[in-house]
Design a protein around this nucleic acid. Structure first.
Lengths: 208, 208
DNA sequence: ACGTTCCGCTACATAGCGTAGCGTATCTGC
DNA sequence: GCAGATACGCTACGCTATGTAGCGGAACGT
C-alpha cells in the first residue's frame, strides 16, 4: 500500500514528487476522507455507484479537486482498494495447513468487505487499462500469493510435500475458487469451503 | 442457447410470444447480424467497445430497432454470448481423466474467443443485474458444470473415486483457475495447465 | 511582496444510454 | 380490398457521467 497517486500512473501534475514542495500544500485530509468515502460506497452500493461527483459531494469538495489527484475514476478506486488491502499476515507457524488456512481466511474476510463489492467493476476496468491491471496485480494479489508461495517453499524444504509441484497452479487452485464464486455468485463462500479447499490442496501436495 | 430476448428478461413488447404473429414480422436477419457484430467487436476490441450505436451502424440499422429487441446493452451482450456458447460436448468415454480434459479444453478455447474478451465486462454487469447474472449462470456456466458433474458421478458409480467428495468445490477448483487467470491475467492459460489441473483434481478424488 | 500551488466554483464539451413520436412498410384476418 | 397491428428507420430529446478549462482567492515558501 502507500501507493502514491502519481506513482501508479501519473497524477494531474507533479505534487508530492518534488522533494521541495512549493506553493500551497495539498490538504491531506481530503485524501483520507476520499478513500474512506470510496470504500464506504463500494461496500454499501457497489462499484457502479462510485462516481467522482458523488464522492466529491460526500467529502464536501469539488470534482476538480479529485481530478487534480487521480487522473480518472479507475485510479481513484484502485488507490482506495490498495490503501485498504495491505499485505496479508502469513505467519510462519511451521504447519502448512495452518498457514494456508490463515491465508485463505483473509480472502474469506476480504470478500465480505469493500473488495468483494469492488471486484467485478475493478476487473472490468483492469481489462481495458493494462497499467491499472499491473498495479492491482502487484499491490493486491501479489502480496497474498507471495505469503502462500513461501508457505509451500518452507513445507517443501521440510520435505513435507512433493517436489514436482506446479506451485503457481496450486495457488490458483487454492484461491481461484474464491474469486470464481465471488464474481459469478453460483455458490457461497463459507468457512467450511476454506477448510475443504486447503484439505484438497494438501492432498495434492502430500507425498504419495 | 436459443435464448429468446423476451425470455431472459422481457423484450420491449410481446413479439415471438403469441403463437398468432400479428402485424409485420421481425426481420430475423437483423437478429443474427447483430449477434455476429457483437461477437466480432467483443473479440477484436473488447466489451467496452460494444455500444448500441456502434452495433447498429455495423448492421446498418437504427438504435431503436435494437432497443425493440433487447431492453439494454447488457441483455444484448448476454444474448450474443449465450447464442455462441452452446452446451459443451461431454462425451461419456468411460474415463474420468479424458472427460475432464475434454471439458476443460473447451474452457481453454472459449477464453480465446469472444467470451474471453467479454468476461470482465460481463462480470461487472452481472454484479448489478441479478437477473442477468442468473441468466448467464444458467445458460453459460451451468451447461459446462453439469457435464463435468456427470463425469464425476459416473466415476463414482464405477467406484473409481472416493465418495466423500464435495463435488461442487472440485468443480470450482478445476475451472476456477481458468476464470481467475482470464480475469486477472497474472498467468497464461495453456494446454499444459489444463492437463496439470485435471491431474491434480484426480489426485484429490482418487481413493486412498 | 512574490511566485507557486491548491481549493472551490462555474462552465463547457463529449459519450453513451434509453425513450418518444412520426411516417412508412409488411403482415394477418375479415 | 381494407382495417388493425406490428416492425422499420428516422429525428429529437433527456439523462448521467466523464473529463477539461479558466477564474478568484487562499496557503505556503523565499
Amino acid at each position: 500500500m502507500r501507493l502514491s497517486a502519481s506513482q501508479s500512473r501519473l497524477a494531474t501534475r507533479g505534487a508530492a514528487c518534488t522533494n521541495a514542495p512549493l506553493g500551497r500544500p495539498r490538504d491531506e485530509s481530503i485524501n483520507t476522507e476520499v478513500v474512506a468515502a470510496v470504500l464506504q460506497v463500494l461496500k454499501t452500493r457497489g462499484y457502479r455507484a462510485v462516481t467522482i461527483e458523488g464522492i466529491a459531494r460526500r467529502v464536501r469538495t469539488a470534482r476538480t479537486s479529485l481530478y487534480r489527484r487521480w487522473p480518472s475514476k479507475r485510479h481513484l478506486v484502485a488507490y482506495a482498494v490498495v490503501s485498504e488491502m495491505g499485505a496479508s499476515p502469513a505467519a510462519d507457524t511451521g504447519a502448512l495447513r495452518e498457514e494456508l488456512e490463515a491465508a485463505v481466511r483473509t480472502l474469506l474476510r476480504a470478500f465480505s468487505g469493500p473488495l468483494g463489492h469492488a471486484l467485478p467493476g475493478l476487473v472490468a476496468d483492469m481489462a481495458q487499462d493494462p497499467e491499472l491491471a499491473a498495479t492491482i496485480r502487484e499491490e493486491v494479489l501479489a502480496a497474498r500469493r507471495n505469503s502462500m508461495r513461501d508457505a509451500f517453499a518452507r513445507a517443501m524444504a521440510r520435505e513435507e510435500i512433493r517436489k514436482d509441484l506446479d506451485i503457481e497452479l496450486l495457488l490458483d487452485m487454492l484461491t481461484g475458487p474464491f474469486y470464481y464464486r465471488a464474481l459469478f455468485g453460483h455458490a457461497p463462500i463459507t468457512a467450511r469451503m476454506t477448510l475443504d479447499t486447503v484439505k484438497y490442496i494438501i492432498r495434492i501436495a502430500s507425498r504419495r
